[in-house]
Amino acid sequence: MALLDIKDLSINFGGLRAVTDFNLSMQEGELVGIIGPNGAGKTTVFNMLTGVYRPTKGEIFLKRRDDSIVNLVGKKPFTITQMGVARTFQNIRLFKDLTVLQNVKIAHHFSAKYGVGGAVLRTPAYFKEEQRIHDEALKLLRIFGLENRKDEISKNLPYGEQRRLELVRALATSPRLLLLDEPAAGMNPQEIKDLMEMIRWIRNEFQLTILLIEHHMEVVMNVCERILVLDYGLTIAQGCPEEIKTNPKVIEAYLGEVVEDA
């Protein structure tokens, strides 16, 4: 059974059919890309997957760590995260006025084994868990070269580091499925090259399954094993990068953008 199985996912916004019959099945460890012109419904798919929007129709099945299957439709965003689906946002949504370290610690929140009582009374569990959260957060920051920034207020980080911090924060929830919404937005060619390296590396290192939305054809074509193309909410093509590049429907949807970009 696949890790993620999306069946006929559709959503209407007051008569506008934003996404229609979206189907996708992902095996563990796969790296799949969704492309499509602006307004094609890509982020809307993410928002349905993470519980921000409730689909009008369709099912989303996720295989949990214990191999049981859950339907994510109707679940709250925080429950879905706790079940192992993490995301980043198209327009970075860090906790702006908190420090880098606090940003990452918040992602460890639901794994903390003490509650309000433990916090107020400062029980041994509090100290043990705080130490663990602190160490784990620092470890992740170190891996991504943000350790020396840990006490910085996150809105003061340069753009590239903010993107990286958002990724660290998502990884800190220890997901099985990672959703990246335009991770290369606003990056220069060198940063994009590094990003591609990093996406491949985190997939192996953290044993992730990754679904990503991207505008940069270079990233999608180089990183993803499989690509879906959305246009006006409809899946107009899917296949390996080679097939997508030569698909006439895709070329038409992009009005030649693909040829120029790829």
Binding site: P77, F78, T81, F89, L98, I106, H108, H109
Partner: peptide
């Protein structure tokens, strides 16, 4: 200054992002 307290801070900063971090 604890994990539940940080969850509150996260809610203050950005409710959508907080939920995406697993915070109810």
């Amino acid at each position: 200054n604890s994990s539940p307290g940080r969850a509150c801070l996260a809610v203050r900063e950005d409710e959508v992002a907080a939920e995406s971090m697993g915070v109810n």
